[in-house]
Every structure is written in C-alpha cells, then in structure tokens.
C-alpha cells in the first residue's frame, strides 16, 4: 500500500482505532493518544501492507497493542507481562528481540507465497478460518491444511536456528 493510498483511507481508519482506545481507556484524551500512535505505526509500515487486503483487522490489532503499551507506560512501576516478568527494554534485550524477529522473517521467507499469505492472515490480522475463506474464496479445509503446513515449516526452521 502506498502512502497516498493510506492517506486516502486514514480518516475512516482513525475512527475505527479511536473506538478501540475509547473502549479500553474510557477517556477521549487517552483514546486520541492511542489512535494517534496507531496511525503513526500504520503509516510507518503501510508500504509493507498488501493494498488489495482489508487493512482494518490489522489496524484494530495494532490499536489494541498501542493501548496496552500506553497502559504499561502510564503505570508507576515497571509492569509488564501477565506472569510477572518485566518486558525487556535494555539494549541487550532489544538486540535479542531484533535477532529473533529477523530469524522469524527468514523462516517466513521459506514459505510459498500462498502459504505465507495465509500464515500472515492468521498471525498478523488475527482472522479466523471462516473469515479467510470468505475473503479469499478458498475452502476451509484447504486453508486449515495450508496454514498447518506453513506453521510446521516455520516451527521446524525456528527450532533448528534456536539450537
């Protein structure tokens, strides 16, 4: 998706992500901040987004993540994960996170285009098999089989690299 294509849908998208923030914070000011941050994130990565796809599910997920990040930042103590461990923010932890992200990208590069598309529809956009089937016209059993094949390939590759 080009920057100008994104600008074309930005206003409509902003309303959608604003609702996500409002539901989470209850205050219009915080919701505005979350919406702003979401739009910046989407703007930054919009060129990597497939223009033929509906961007809304991804925008909603990014908005939810922005809300949670803001919620963590606004708490007085270092909060974080639900299991008590703090999220990494030291240079070493950031470097490790970047390494694992790169590892995942390289594992995804091994997938066939169709597999990768379905994998990302499930993982990035959080769409269900039914929703993917409606959007792509592919029968549900085929989607399940292709998603499974993609996940197993990525899993095997990640395990090999993590040893």
């Amino acid at each position: 998706m080009t920057r100008s294509e994104f600008e074309h849908i930005a206003a409509q998208l902003r309303q959608k992500v604003l609702k996500v923030g409002l539901q989470f914070f209850g205050s219009p000011e915080d919701a505005e901040d979350a919406a702003q941050e979401t739009m910046v994130q989407l703007w930054r990565y919009c060129e990597q987004i497939d223009a033929s796809r509906n961007i809304e599910p991804l925008a909603v997920r990014v908005a939810k993540n922005c809300c949670v990040s803001m919620y963590r930042r606004n708490r007085p103590a270092p909060i974080p994960s639900l299991y008590g461990g703090e999220l990494g923010s030291s240079p070493q932890e950031i470097m490790e996170a970047n390494d694992t992200q790169r590892m995942l990208e390289e594992a995804l590069d091994l997938l066939k285009p169709r597999e990768r598309q379905l994998f990302e529809m499930r993982q990035l956009e959080g769409l269900s098999v039914d929703e993917i089937s409606t959007e792509t016209g592919i029968p549900k059993p085929s989607i399940t089989a292709m998603v499974s094949a993609a996940r197993k390939k990525v899993f095997t590759e990640l395990k090999r690299r993590m040893k």
């Binding site: 539901q23 989470f24 997920r61 990014v62 939810k64 993540n65 809300c67 949670v68 990040s69 919620y71 639900l82 694992t100 590892m103 995942l104 993982q123 990035l124 959080g126 996940r151 990525v154 899993f155 990640l158 395990k159 993590m162 040893k163």
Partner: peptide, 25 residues
C-alpha cells in the same frame, strides 16, 4: 522449554497484545 519459545515467536507480539487488551478490558 526452548521449543515453546519458537511457538511464542510465531504467535507474535500482536497476538499477545490483543490477549492482554482483552484481559484488561
């Protein structure tokens, strides 16, 4: 376990963030 870390990576930050969002809401 190490194998589960690979799954965690595959699920990604967006899934985790969404899960936390829903829990907090």
């Amino acid at each position: 376990p190490q194998e589960w870390k690979a799954i965690r990576l595959m699920l990604g930050e967006l899934t985790l963030g969404e899960a936390e969002y829903d829990t907090i809401v």
